[in-house]
């Protein structure tokens, strides 16, 4: 078994009210390090390993079709070691 991870983030130009709420909550709790915060989604997909390039390409296609909305989001696909 291997795990393919797909991370989905809102495009930088798309307003992220959830990230803004997190950013506003951090200093209230005494965490003063954050200059910005954006929130995304992470998918962990188990497949029969080892992962092939063809499999990664297929996952990318699935990410583009379903997991992310390319109108507002970007995604990355990688194999979890």
């Amino acid at each position: 078994m291997a795990t393919i991870v797909v991370d989905v983030m809102l495009k930088p130009e798309i307003l992220d009210p959830q990230g803004q709420a997190v950013l506003a909550a951090l200093p209230r709790l005494g965490f003063t390090f954050a200059k910005s915060a954006r929130q995304g989604k992470r998918f962990e997909i188990e497949v029969d390993g080892p992962v092939t390039q063809a499999q990664l390409a297929e996952v990318s296609k699935a990410a583009e079709t379903l997991l992310a909305n390319p109108v507002i989001e970007t995604f990355t696909v990688r194999v979890e070691e």
Partner: peptide, 10 residues
């Protein structure tokens, strides 16, 4: 075209 996203103010 476009998309509907979370309301400003949540």
């Amino acid at each position: 075209p476009g998309a509907l996203t979370r309301n400003v103010g949540l």
